[in-house]
Nucleic acid binder design. Structure first.
Lengths: 343, 343
DNA sequence: TTTTTTTACGAAAACGTTTGCGCGGAGTCA
DNA sequence: TGACTCCGCGCAAACGTTTTCGTAAAAAAA
């Protein structure tokens, strides 16, 4: 099953020119007479010549493609980010190669190595929930692979980063619950090793502190696999519900955790917000048709993808090594709906 | 910003061998003595040699990557399909290059040409809502580019296809509404040029016919852009609601249309299912926490992606031209929830 | 010993480009 | 007319592989 395309050689032969002349003509070199250029261009257009990108990549040492590693594409937040990545990349003529870590450290390593050895020009990555060490990325970065981190980032790699304002988002979410009169606000979050987890946790704690409330560590439940394990969230939720001093509100720290928690509460016939209020991080466009409609911290997911891609391409196409790195912090938005409001 | 990797040449020089010997040793050729192989392998492992895939691609004429064109990745159904595609592709060591048509015919053409000229080994595609002619794909297919169509397919291309049982899904959805006692069942669907639209429409009509009901064309509303235009769905819904003989139930034919319709009904303060019942095609994992929980035709999205990828790779790796093509029809599942049940 | 076979390797071409350099011929200048 | 410049083009190397073929030397057969 081959796919025979016309090459420079074919053009050269047909026009009685040399390969180099054709190549230069196609690229508009001043070394070639206008007349010859015209001939070549005409013939190329007529026969729908397209340069072989693989040969070009080999020659130029660049593949015009960027690799993406996310935990799972089947997730409102990440698919929206990828939407942003794809749109910018396409516009700048880069291919986007997607891989999923499925929250597995092993797979993240495998994917990063695979992508770098498959010659992507750069990497956009959000760490997996299991990832605690980033040596694999540092190694690639030190070898010169441009990299942009987003969402779940790490300080150990000196490069551009794009995140949402997780602290603020969590702070506002928690404060909102407190303002609604809830006093026992629990927090279900992802792996404690993720940056987003810590940032959101800080926002949560700060809001409690600002309201003069003590932090009860019992109210904080971690899901080391970010809710990818079916029972992880159930377990966290059950523990909260079985506490003697059961929480009257929950703030969930990720898309998957939020929808799963709401779903579980509904299965358990626990009324939201009457028996327990809920605020979640989610980018589901359907949050307003949930039952109850879910008060959500919304991240500018598509914009994050776009920004990350812009920065990555900047890095890739930089003439000289970049030493000044940006950490873009994009604003979040608290959309207040029914799940968090006293009635 | 370069990324210097070790090459076969480096190994050859270091070990005082020729390039060809090293290449053969690495590939375990019988022409090379065990001893030499050991040396080479050891050196390669020690220096973490990875063959340059671009050079291999150029030599072999295959890139080990497959292109995907979907209308939009930020959609429960398609992201789930891509999840399936990625998982199979990764396992078989293929890269997945994602592009979005955004339901635009122009962009579909641009993407397909871009991907083929960027030397993907094959294409997995679901047509855009705007697409009425598929010459651009036929051209590529005739040139020998392996292709698998899924979901929104066309008969004009003789190749493998993977779809859900749209007729059955639609039939069951409609029959379910009729069984619940609804008599004026409307249908909001995508572009009339899409295969899924026709198949689902047929299922809808057949269910009506089997119940002894006439089809009222006024009850059938098309959204030529698949609900990507913000007002498209609203318009369709409004027209239905303003009919003198207003429908008492709606069957929506796609993921986006279903969630949008439910959202609009809620904004319009129309009670579901009391004032109007609703059944939708959706792969949202959150359908059970919608208000009301949404009775849905669920497609085996991930499995569709996996099947399509399996078939494509079969095509790519076939020794001889394949002439027998499969049309895989995967079963759908009707998940009955509150939005469609009389109470 | 001579001839044949086998073993283990190297030389070189090829995949489709890009690019530095060389060179013949036309034109310019003295 | 000779020396010089410039134009337009071709040669060849290079990117990193794979693969065909050729060939020494060693081993086996005669």
């Amino acid at each position: 099953m081959k796919f025979e395309a016309i090459t420079i050689k074919d053009i050269a032969r047909a026009l009685g020119l040399s390969v180099s002349t054709v190549s230069k003509a196609l690229r508009g070199s001043h070394e070639i007479s206008e007349e010859t250029k015209k001939h070549v261009l005409a013939y190329a257009a007529e026969h729908n010549y397209k340069p072989n990108p693989i040969a070009q990549s080999l020659k130029r040492g660049r593949s015009k493609s960027i690799g993406v590693i996310v935990c799972n594409i089947d997730n409102n937040f990440f698919s929206a980010v990828i939407n942003g990545i794809e749109s910018v990349a396409r516009q700048k003529d880069y291919n986007v190669i997607i891989t999923q870590s499925q929250e597995s450290y092993e797979r993240e390593i495998a994917n990063s190595e695979h992508l770098s050895s498959r010659s992507v020009d750069g990497l956009i990555i959000s760490l997996s929930a299991e990832t605690k060490r980033v040596d694999h990325l540092i190694k690639l970065h030190d070898k010169g692979l441009p990299m942009v981190l987003f969402d779940r980032i790490t300080d150990e790699i000196a490069t551009h980063k794009v995140i949402a304002d997780n602290f603020k988002g969590a702070y506002e979410a928690t404060r909102h619950l407190l303002e609604q009169g809830f006093r026992r606000v629990a927090h279900i979050t992802s792996s404690g090793s993720l940056s987003i987890t810590l940032e959101r946790l800080d926002g949560y704690k700060k809001a409690l502190a600002d309201a003069g409330l003590a932090v009860d560590e019992q109210y904080i439940k971690f899901c080391p696999h970010g809710g990818m394990l079916p029972d992880e969230t159930r377990q966290a939720l059950t523990e909260l519900l079985e506490m003697p001093n059961r929480p009257d509100a929950i703030f969930t720290a990720s898309d998957r955790l939020s929808t799963t928690t709401l779903s579980l509460l509904r299965k358990m016939k626990i009324e939201v917000p009457d028996q327990i209020a809920l605020v979640g991080f989610t980018n589901s466009i359907s949050a307003d048709i949930f039952h109850p409609s879910l008060t959500s911290v919304v991240q500018p997911a598509k914009e994050m993808g776009q920004a990350a891609t812009d920065l990555l391409i900047q890095l890739i196409e930089a003439k000289r090594p970049v030493t000044e790195f940006q950490k873009l912090v994009l604003d979040t938005q608290l959309q207040i709906r029914d799940s968090s409001q006293r009635r």
